[in-house]
Write a protein that binds this DNA or RNA. Structure first.
Lengths: 239, 239
DNA sequence: GAATACTGTTCCGCTCTACGGAACAATATT
DNA sequence: AATATTGTTCCGTAGAGCGGAACAGTATTC
């Protein structure tokens, strides 16, 4: 475990986490590293183009890490294929649609198209939410009942009741989609997307204020969601 | 210049650049580093959550760098403020709108809302294009005539005629917006956005097939663009 | 199916890098 | 003016990281 490498990423992460420019001393405190060490590594990061120093001596991260990261997602088959379907789903439903992927016990928001009448949403693209709390996460997990340790870990992570979650996931599996409402007043409907026969890693979801997701409209949205999921899965399997 | 740190980023970049999973030997060749060195650093990167190894032994970057990067852009005032204005501009014009920032001699595409009737576009979010070739880049540079070395460097970088570029930029400055058509058949109109009296770093632009950008519609788009720029600048200056 | 050419991985002695405490100059704060 | 910050530099020393070679496993080849 290369120490300097590990430390450099710790510093970069601390730099990105700090809103606005960060001071050397703060970074030193945040990472629990000697000032001289942080200084030297920051010099290296600056030389590599990952950090910058303003006139007052404070440091900020550059867009370099973003460039790399965006290249990584752009290379994901799911992401590449999803764009068109997300837009279509957004257009037909008129509501907020999201693309999420499973990352450990969390779900990661890869893309989101916000409704014209937007929901008070806490999540933004790039944010993590515990999988069992979201419609997309439940949809993915429900297709993974064959891997109970995964679900158990996700549940324990959040002090959730494992048997209760299991039965809910089983319902989701039979129904073909998952429901969620961890943000009060907001309901989400999610469906998992699998590629090439492998267990699903991603999910599509539609979110809206609960009162807009009732009756006929709700049925229409579920139908559009499942239809989109089917066509997207097909597109992913097509080489 | 910490060697291991520098090397670790070189490896991570090579990993991100390689489309699909990368083999150790290829990374070793690409970075011109000993196999054992690459192996050790990859082990570190994996432990830190930046890389992953599949069953066949090949390595892929994780979404970790993306998470960090997206946090960095989300923290940019320009990015945070822009979202709403981009959508509005997209709605009124019906065409592709982009938000770019200057990065060295290039322009970096931060955000893009694609038209329903999309243009055959080469650029995607996260890509770099030499500033003097784009409407947004010209718009930014035209507001920087006070810093000729910046413009000169950008021009030389691309073997462009410096005096010619200078006169064009001067025209842009007087007109208030920049034009560009480096992709054949596609015209873009760009306007620079400045914050807090500082020289502009970012630009808004509208792109469409040249034939759609003529006559009255062209005038309307320019008006909408300049109006949006004005309101966005105002919003940026409001604390 | 044996032989070859790759993989990724492990080992280990030597070198030099990265470390961290202390002193530094330059600002803020009191 | 005095004090407490800041970021920066210096340098002797410990040990981290290096790289060559040998390793085991898997495709490829003949």
């Amino acid at each position: 475990m290369d120490r300097a490498v590990s430390r450099s990423f710790a510093i970069l992460e601390a730099l990105a986490r700090s809103r606005g420019p960060a001071r050397l001393s703060d970074l030193s405190a945040a990472t629990d590293l000697q000032k001289s060490t942080v200084h030297r590594i920051l010099a290296t990061l600056s030389e590599l183009g990952y950090a910058d120093q303003d006139d007052s001596g404070r440091y900020r991260p550059t867009l370099r890490s973003w460039e790399i990261g965006i290249g990584v997602v752009a290379d994901l088959p799911i992401y590449r294929v999803a764009a068109g379907y997300l837009h279509a789903l957004h257009r037909t439903t008129g509501e907020t649609v999201s693309l999420t992927v499973l990352s450990g016990s969390d779900v990661l928001y890869l893309e989101k198209l916000t409704a014209a009448r937007p929901v008070r949403f806490l999540t933004r693209v790039g944010s993590r939410v515990p999988a069992p709390l979201t419609a997309g996460g439940k949809a993915i997990l429900s297709a993974r009942i064959d891997a109970p340790q995964l679900i158990e870990e996700a549940a324990v992570h959040r002090d959730l009741d494992v048997p209760a979650l299991m039965t809910e996931l089983e319902e989701c599996r039979q129904r073909g989609y998952a429901l969620s409402g961890y943000s009060p007043g907001v309901t989400s409907i999610g469906a998992a997307v699998a590629a090439g026969g492998a267990p699903p890693e991603a999910a599509l979801s539609v979110s809206a204020p609960s009162e807009r997701l009732a009756g006929k409209k709700r049925e229409a949205i579920i139908e559009a969601l499942l239809e989109t999921r089917a066509r997207m899965t097909e597109a992913l399997d097509r080489p």
